[in-house]
Nucleic acid binder design. Structure first.
Lengths: 208, 208
DNA sequence: ATCCAAAATCTAACCGTGTTAGGTAAACGG
DNA sequence: CCGTTTACCTAACACGGTTAGATTTTGGAT
């Protein structure tokens, strides 16, 4: 079956299929032949549209980054808008936990990313920062968001809070106090993120 | 050359060699056979001391995490101690840029990590937080540190600041204002991290 | 002392997965 | 209508993680 009457593949189609597979089965399942299978095609054919697997992974990462909503930075704007943007940013990564190793591979310098930084910096300046201060604040916010997306503080705590008591008393006390719904550790990650974000934003405009 | 008179390998020895290689040549160069070469041994022999390459990478990650100095959390203690700890933590990862994809693979729940969290939480409580507030603050600090270590905000900005002007004016202004040494973007990452850290720590104890 | 099981290394090879080479037929521009 | 390009295929390579099985030394038990 050479050159089909109607073209079956494209970079975008392949990237989408890869993202679906990644989402369903994780990074280990993401093999070129498997992606091809899903598209009713043989593995080697993908290379007419994608330079390498690495290149494909870049396309997938871009697909995800495109889901980040820059709207809140300009729409309502202000500190509340910045906070909304940051939460949305984080939320996108939380929806694609399998992406984490991908994102960490190398920094993306796509146009989308630049537009995001530009919007964030503009929002910070509009909120009262000098450009120099805004640069530092943007770096801090970016760090916080990415760290929060990549690591989920509580993931390392698999035992019941009380079980940490003998060896790690402060940890046991903090975890016990933190999760009102016992055994859930529910919103600690989110609350921690939100705390950090609010403190940074509040610290920018030294009160009113 | 079967079973040498004096044993050549051990998990620790292999992990150290792997870390050295990683440090010098990066993650792509980290092949089992290459590590073995360095130790004067054949690749297959490593599997008597290490379950898999993944297992070996865990050992390497642990080696690096062991370099994090928990001292400042108890020694001087207080907010200054916490800040010193956070800077040291970040510094370790900055020293091993090749480790980033490794760390992002999966959360470590080693004893060392637990001790770190315990010490951090204890320091926060000693600095005046309630246990519940300390839990959230620790999450925020952890996010900030990891994010800062993994991403280097400025890495995506490869052009000269002024070159961003037409399309990304706020970005151009911020970068221009931020780097006093033109073209260096020198300490922006560090200053942003430090800003975030200071704001979080200052916000914990609502002034005096 | 002697012997036997276990341990540490080797050689050889397997296997999966990314990738390339080269074929074939449909599409498209002239 | 013809030639070139395109988009797929089949076949196969290459490389890297991993396993099997042989070999020899160690070390403990008899």
């Amino acid at each position: 079956m050479p050159r089909p009457s109607q073209t079956l593949l494209s970079r975008a189609i392949i990237a989408r299929a890869a993202l679906d597979l990644l989402d369903e089965q994780g990074l280990e399942a993401l093999k070129m032949r498997t992606i091809a299978d899903r598209l009713g095609v043989k593995g080697a054919s993908l290379y007419h549209h994608v330079r390498s697997k690495d290149d494909l992974l870049d396309a997938v990462a871009e697909l995800i980054n495109d889901e980040i909503d820059l709207g809140p930075l300009s729409d309502p704007g202000g500190p509340a808008g910045i906070a909304a943007y940051a939460h949305g940013y984080r939320g996108v990564y939380l929806r694609y936990p399998h992406m984490i190793p991908l994102v960490a591979r190398h920094r993306v310098s796509s146009v989308k990313a630049l537009r995001g930084y530009d919007a964030l910096l503009a929002a910070l300046v509009r909120a009262g920062s000098t450009p120099a201060a805004a640069a530092e604040a943007a770096a801090a916010i970016d760090n916080l968001v990415l760290g929060s997306a990549l690591e989920t503080f509580t993931a390392g705590f698999t035992r019941q809070p009380a079980d940490y008591r003998p060896d790690f008393p402060a940890l046991a006390a903090a975890l016990t106090a933190a999760d009102e719904a016992p055994g859930a550790l529910a919103g600690l990650d989110t609350r921690g993120f939100d705390l950090g974000l609010r403190l940074i934003l509040a610290g920018l405009t030294p009160s009113a």
